[in-house]
Amino acid sequence: MGRIEEKFRELHEQNKAALICYVTAGDPDIDFTEQVIYRMEASGVDMVEIGIPFSDPMADGPVIQAASERALANSTSLSDVLSLVRRIRSRLDIPVILFGYYNPFFSYGTERFARDAREAGADGVLVVDLPPEEAGELSVHVEREGLDRIFLLAPTSTEERIEMVSENASGFIYVVSVTGVTGARPDMDYDIEDLVGRIKRRSELPVGVGFGVSSARQATAIASFSDAVIVGSALVRIIEGGGKEKQEVLGKISSFTEELSAACQR
């Protein structure tokens, strides 16, 4: 059993939704990202999503775009991210998901990437601009290495697409809560509960909800009907606002993730 599946089982027994938190690797530098990840685990985060920065993040709102630009300003690459995973794996118990856009993976070489990611100790891969139709080449290698293939579903997804994603995914299914880009939003579309229900009728996999989650109140609402709550931009914003006060930023990340983690208890 992979770490992701194991984690979901463990949380299911505790009647808790998983808290999955995102951080852009290299924002503002890779050592700080490492500190952020340790803090996240210590504060109750159940899985971490490490974002590989990309020059053209089409699915991201201004907050994560800016994080990507900060990370690229110090040339953070996919190789750097794999080295980071290798470094943290011995200290970290929680699953690590690599999250990014296809071109850096394609450029690295899909077979080489899958092998290196598994060796480094990553657990799952989510490529935002790689729907099942185009995922073949990467999926073959990722599956062979025993990593989970996480796909997105959106409010616009048809029954046919829910079926296709269910057949191709492993680990969990990531539901994009809004028709839009990433970014914290004060209010969310709670029709998403209906979408999660439709997915659960077709798939045994856990379902996580992300894009726009920015408060403990929203996390509680989402935890009531889904298996995971995914938070990104709201955390990136804390890092963005931090400037040179790194200890202060880490403190804020700890208190915010502790609050979110408590909200995931049903």
Binding site: A154, T156, V176
Partner: peptide
């Protein structure tokens, strides 16, 4: 070619 886009756009 192909369709390398996020899921939200695939149905569109």
């Amino acid at each position: 070619g192909g369709r390398y886009v996020s899921e939200t756009l695939m149905p569109a």
